[in-house]
Amino acid sequence: MRPARALRGGLLLLAVVLMLFPAVWMLITSLKDIQDVYAATVFDFTPTLDNYRDVFVSTSAAGGASDLVTNFSNSVIITALATLLATLIGVPAAWGFSRFDLKGAKDQLFFILSTRFMPPVVVVIPLFVMYRWAGLYDTRTGLVLLYTAFNLPFTIWMMKGFVDEIPGEYEDALMMDGYSRLQAFRQGSLPLLVPGILATAVFSMIFTWNEFTFAVFLTGSTARTVPPAIAGLLGGQSTPWGLVAAAAMVFALPVLAFGFLVRKHLVAGMTFGAVRR
């Protein structure tokens, strides 16, 4: 048994190194100037933060903010607003689905889940036409609305699970005491739902922050978010690998931090709530 166990442990360790090393290498690359990126040695170099500076400050003679700063501020604003809206609309809806015996609620929930199976490339062409027609193409508003819509099914599905876990008696008791249905929800269930709401919101943030397909189809330069912008850096003849690596690091770090915060709910979040624990 012992050697087998050691072998398994060794295999796992090797696999984890394989999983993490690309990230470590990217970190190293982001700290190199252009000569060191192309140098023959991997680890022998003088670390520099120039690439990180270039993410935020333009390299042109005039100085000022770089294009990536615009992309990052777009991403921050769009992610924050879309998450907020999805939570504000989604939590009451989830509560409604959970607490009321609705005719047709099952069908609605099925529809909500089925949107998970819908390829973005199918709806993106009509959305493109609609956005061009309505003046929403390449606007932050357009992306906020779209991401709110696409975060909602997930928010409702996750939150319904959390509401289901809280017995309805709290609210019933408060209603006996003369509270209205809404007051009973606010006083009775809402405080208990806060951790669930935060976890769900973090997942919405991660999805929105990372989203690429809609962003690349529905934005030009004004409202462009970070993922298509980073992809755009790769276009030319010689790729500025140090800058790309630094931008990718700055882009990925918040997600890793947030992912760590919701690690307990990771299974539910990654599987759209289908597998809870």
């Binding site: 999983m19 993922p227 990718a248 882009f251 890793l256």
Partner: peptide, 21 residues
């Protein structure tokens, strides 16, 4: 953590890393 990091990291960041690798 080692295994799930790639899942929540943007596919763009990952594709960039791999293209470089």
């Amino acid at each position: 953590v080692g295994y799930y990091l790639p899942v929540i990291t943007s596919i763009i960041a990952i594709a960039v890393i791999w293209r470089f690798m």
